[in-house]
Nucleic acid binder design. Structure first.
Lengths: 169, 169
DNA sequence: TATTGTTATACTCTATAACTATA
DNA sequence: TATAGTTATAGAGTATAACAATA
């Protein structure tokens, strides 16, 4: 193995990849700062609040986790923090008592509303300021395609092992 | 206060922003998995090795940190790990004895070479596969512009400005 | 005094595995 | 047996502040 990736990228590709990674790292860092400063929350927590704010009905833990967090316990941890801060509530889902439904409290909704403008302002100042309308449209189109591609194509080599259902471990 | 960012984004902008953030989050996650699985290193550590591999001369800690890590102690921590793993060495810089110069060991260079193909393969499969050559060129051009914009325009509200001891907080 | 880097420390976050309870 | 979620726990990473040494 390890020969699977011997084929080099085109020169421009590597540059593009690094520019993308570095730019987004910087963006993430600034966004984290803004959210922490103005709302005392992390970007992960912001995403969870955003999902709940976006949905007109409560979400189960599993629905909430999707794409935001990569382990169940990670979500339980974050939900615990949000609940302790009074931003969400958790309760058993009557239709399936294994599930937990998560609701945004008024305080949570208010915090989200309070934090959102600054969040948008950061993205405008750091990301959109140097871009034309055409750039933005193209970037959005391209990254949407990439995102959907990734969602549809889960890891191949990244997974340590194909675990069959029910296997130990 | 909090009205600083009341102006809304154009509809497409918010979508673009979230698509970008989610796509790159997924990409980062896969990349971390690959690096951890094949080389036992994190993306931060990969970046540090990459910088050293890219440079024909050793770098000081400060040069190495630039853009990769946001605190001095964070770099010291990472350098400590890399040194303990035998991937780099640190020694005093004769010309300025305050500085530490970092050198890639043969083992470090070998690890980097070993891990790079898989890294490239992940980026190809997840990022580049759904993109045309034009998309890649445009994406690279746009993200380079954004990156340079961010580098040139450090945080406004987020900056841990030089504060004198005893200031608020 | 300012700068380079390290250390001590506290904190946040993540992930694996074992667990409970429902289906 | 499988699924939803929690808990226990361990480990990785980050940041702030105090520090030492050099410029």
């Amino acid at each position: 193995m390890t020969t699977s990736g011997a084929r080099p990228l085109d020169p421009g590709q590597l540059e593009t990849y690094f520019a993308l990674m570095e730019a987004v790292s910087l963006l993430q860092h600034h966004v984290e700062q803004q959210l922490r400063a103005e709302g005392g929350i992390s970007y992960v927590q912001f995403q969870l609040l955003a999902r709940l704010a976006d949905s007109d009905r409560p979400l189960t833990m599993t629905q909430l986790a999707d794409g935001v967090v990569y382990s169940r316990s990670g979500l339980t941890y974050q939900a615990g923090l949000l609940e302790k801060a009074g931003l969400i509530t958790r309760s058993t889902f009557p239709d399936d008592e294994r599930a937990t439904v998560v609701t945004l409290t008024e305080k949570g909704a208010a915090l989200f509303e309070r934090v959102l403008p600054g969040h948008i302002e950061v993205s405008r100042r750091l990301l959109f300021e140097p871009l034309s309308a055409t750039d933005v449209r193209h970037l959005g189109e391209v990254m949407t395609r990439v995102r959907d591609h990734m969602r549809a194509r889960p890891p191949r080599s990244a997974a340590p092992r194909k675990r069959r259902p029910g296997t130990a471990r």
